[in-house]
Design a protein around this nucleic acid. Sequence first.
DNA 1: GTCTATACCGAGATAGAC
DNA 2: GTCTATCTCGGTATAGAC
Lengths: 194, 194
Amino acid sequence: MKKGEETKQNILEHGLRLFSSKGYEETSLKDIATKVNIKTPSIYAYFSSKDELFEKIVEFVIDDYVKFIDDQASTIGPLSTKDQLYKLLGELNEYYYMNDRGVFLKRYGVFPPERFKELITQKNSMVENEIRKLLYRILDVESDDHQFIDKENIATAFICLLDGMLFYLMNYSFEEYERRLTSTWKVFWKGILK
Amino acid sequence: MKKGEETKQNILEHGLRLFSSKGYEETSLKDIATKVNIKTPSIYAYFSSKDELFEKIVEFVIDDYVKFIDDQASTIGPLSTKDQLYKLLGELNEYYYMNDRGVFLKRYGVFPPERFKELITQKNSMVENEIRKLLYRILDVESDDHQFIDKENIATAFICLLDGMLFYLMNYSFEEYERRLTSTWKVFWKGILK
DNA sequence: GTCTATACCGAGATAGAC
DNA sequence: GTCTATCTCGGTATAGAC
């Protein structure tokens, strides 16, 4: 990779990390520059403004998440319906926990800075759709022992569960999160059986 | 009410509203002063800094919510267990939807500015405890036809559901939220029965 | 491509008149 | 109790040398 290209990547990565943990306004270009080991004005060689940098990160993050969701489709294929659902829940949760992209997604998905509201809500509905599509695919397979309630219903409850678990992930230790995941999953699974 | 006292209340109220909708950093003291129809420096007659103003609002909001939860205890008394749970879920959700205090609570509960992190997480665990206590009280009554799974389990799932629904409340119309509440509730209720 | 120097602005905050 | 005037600081952004 060329030196310039490398710097650009570094700016994007550290920007992502800082925006995730501290928020848009609380992160200065100087903070980012320091992490990348350059001076603030050098950032302008790659991005025309702080806003533009942020938007580029938004786009990268959402596209990456959509890709991640699609990847799950192929990974969970051979499992039983129950295991597929549980695995999907765990994987999507851990995507949030394990990297800054997830935190970024949630932080700005729920509370976007005024200027980026439109861009973000638009992109966000893509994500929910992707998850719903995957859930329908899982539930459509009839080769299983179980009977389920209405699919749409399940998807809505599943997504709610996903969002709710996020709070646990963010506010508690990983162990506590796992305990709570088990509890919640039990209720969900019993709840969607006919 | 004395004039000074009134101004102070106005600052608190408009501060709350602006912090909820725009966030801490994006809200300037000038924004608040404008809404109150005073000039920025007048705020310092009541609060020694922006930080102090914010902290006062945090404390007010959390205390008010805890009070609200306690109020629910007396309101839902005569209903069946099922109706009590459903009503509680609806009431707690709508507290969020209907006033800025709820949005404030969530916004800073999940993503507090660095400086206030400690204050807020500490206060926040009080809230979860209050909800758990109330749930245990509801579930302890045995005069009902239903058998339930483990109480702790139910409480965890309930709180997860509460947090998840928040995303629906914030990102969709009230009608869509209600549709989704129905779906999610169905799954939850089936899930907690023995 | 990265730097130093600097312009510019808006924020939080203080002093002191009325 | 509220104002005008003003200070200070840190942020984004630009100019121009190397």
